[in-house]
Nucleic acid binder design. Structure first.
Lengths: 148, 148
DNA sequence: TGAATATATATCGTGTACGATTTAATTTTA
DNA sequence: TAAAATTAAATCGTACACGATATATATTCA
């Protein structure tokens, strides 16, 4: 029981610190493009499937309307995406990549790839970590869903 | 190279999602105590070493003054810590746990322990994940420091 | 000692995050 | 079909998170 009480030994803190490091790495790599880290995640989601509704983007990047709405407004102002009411269901809004967003795909990916490689993270630990994180994340999510 | 371009395959996103799940778990477990997750991390830091300066807390929980200052002000208002200018060096501020904070230690730890156990995270994956996260975090931090 | 430098907080601006409420449009159903 | 329920965005309030600047106190050293 006492094992849980020390700051250094808490898994939450290890996740929190690593998340913070990723945030800093991406912030720095994306700065020249005038993009933030969560904004970049939205671009990635749209690259997998352009023209999503805001709600669908939210499901992909796990963000609610209170976060996404102002964020996408900013991305629109910065010329990364466009926003228009769906013709089919005019409650929903369709978000699409601009030409600028499509054209800068390679440059952005390269900047991030370089930043990641500079850290010297090994391929095997990359995938092992992904696997473990996925497992823990799913358990936590499942447990959270069951409570509601 | 193309491996890096999909959202699902990005380590950053796995960390981000897991961090978000921890945040939600702790938020829920700490809600009855009127404590947020980062505030709880500050309490943990003070339990390891009470009477730290704000700067020292910042080093432990990796937060800057722009975040910590208002946070600790809120924690003072909520009766978790006290704040007073150091007698030795009146630039620095000494943060100490209140009786309330000391007395609720067990109750809070129990609430979190229960929430974690409900998820069914195995002990071996807990420690394996800690190890991998620590390794990646250190590499990222080292790389970040070298750039400056 | 007095000016330059360093240090610890405090403050400010921007951008997430999230729960709760509001508004507008669509679907369900009585 | 009209009222009720649902849904998608938008808005609001609170709380991080961080870089930059300001302020007050200490320290250094010419």
């Amino acid at each position: 029981m006492n094992d849980y009480l020390s700051l250094d030994q808490q898994l939450c803190f290890a996740v929190y610190e690593t998340s913070s490091e990723f945030n800093k790495l991406y912030t720095k790599a994306l700065e020249p493009f005038n993009l933030t880290y969560p904004q970049y995640l939205v671009l990635l989601a749209l690259r997998e499937n352009d023209g999503l509704a805001q709600k669908e983007i939210g499901e992909k990047v796990r963000l609610g309307t209170g976060t996404l709405n102002p964020m996408i407004t900013r991305m629109t102002a910065n010329g990364w995406v466009t926003k228009e009411r769906s013709t089919g269901d005019s409650r929903s809004v369709v978000i699409s990549l601009t030409e600028k967003a499509k054209n800068s795909k390679r440059d952005i990916a390269l900047a991030i790839k370089e930043a990641i490689e500079r850290c010297g993270i090994q391929s095997n630990e990359y995938f092992e970590l992904m696997k473990l994180l996925g497992s823990v994340r799913d358990k936590m999510k499942k447990s959270r869903m069951e409570q509601a």
